Amino acid sequence: MRVLALDTATEIGAIALVEDDLLLAQIQLRVEKTHSQHLWRTIRFLLAETGWGLEQIDLWAVSTGPGSFTGVRIGLATVKGLAWASQKPVIGVSTLDVLAWSVTPTPYLICPILDARHQEVFFAFYRCTPEGSVRMIREPGHESPLALVQQIREPAVFLGNGVWRYPEIFRDRSGLRALIPEFWSHPLSGVTLAAIAQQRFRRGEGRSAGKVSPLYLRPAD
């Protein structure tokens, strides 16, 4: 199965081309304004380098948020348009899910954290299962960083751009409860997004482009 996975929900976007369990190409790019300036050019570059045509893609994967409202809209609009043109299914995956899967396996609570602006963060809680999967144990929400830290009473893995946005809270005030991976673990991985999408597609979750919706968690700014 050939998958194009695209994430533009945060300032570091990712595009990956994956065939079954093999990564063929991936680009991660930090943008200062919006991903729309580089997105289509980057997609065309990756397709040209791998020799793929749009008609050869079997599945489209896209991050649905939460994150930047503009970034989420850009990613969804791009994938929906391409999927509609190619008449291929789309899998939407929460940005929090992608982050949680990127640090497995771990015995600790997993808490992906994304900057929500206005002194808040988006988050959810996850645990690894004995079968090697990841299970959400608290639905996505938004809180102040300090209010979130005060709810955690056990060692937890914190990752995502919200950790770096509020280091004085997640690094300094959480004490021994904070397990923070190296910086390269915090941007979303297009490969992980593609892997989750393939798994869900095999369970019969593929959708038409028009049925994939954003996960905003609160009204747009």
Rank of each mutant, 00 (worst) to 15 (best):
P130C: 10
Q28T: 13
I15Q: 08
G67S: 10
G75M: 03
I152W: 05
R135V: 12
P155S: 08
A5T: 09
Q37E: 15
L114C: 05
V62R: 02
P66T: 01
Q26P: 02
S185V: 07
Q56I: 06
A124Q: 09
L17F: 13
R73C: 04
Q26N: 12
L193S: 01
L17I: 14
L193G: 04
I57R: 13
T106N: 09
T50W: 12
V31R: 08
D7K: 03
R153P: 01
R73W: 09
Q198V: 01
G162F: 03
R177H: 13
A25Q: 12
E131M: 14
G175Q: 12
L109I: 12
L6G: 02
W184T: 11
R165C: 07
T70P: 00
Y126D: 00
R165I: 12
R207L: 14
K211G: 02
G190V: 06
G65S: 01
V3F: 10
S185F: 12
V103F: 02
S189K: 03
I137P: 07
G67Q: 01
S208T: 13
V3I: 14
R203H: 11
T106A: 10
W52P: 04
E182Y: 00
A194D: 01
D20I: 07
L217H: 09
R135Q: 14
W40D: 15
L22F: 12
L59W: 14
I74L: 05
G210P: 08
V79A: 02
A9P: 07
E205F: 04
S86P: 05
R207T: 11
M1A: 10
Y166W: 15
E49A: 14
L96R: 07
L217D: 11
F123L: 12
G204N: 11
W184A: 13
S86V: 07
F69I: 06
V3L: 07
A100E: 04
G160Y: 03
L179I: 15
T8N: 07
T50R: 11
A83N: 03
G160P: 01
R177P: 06
V90I: 04
G175M: 05
R165G: 05
W84M: 11
V18H: 08
S189C: 08
R207P: 00
R127D: 13
R207W: 10
L22A: 15
I74Q: 05
I57P: 05
Y126S: 08
F123I: 08
A178K: 00
I15R: 06
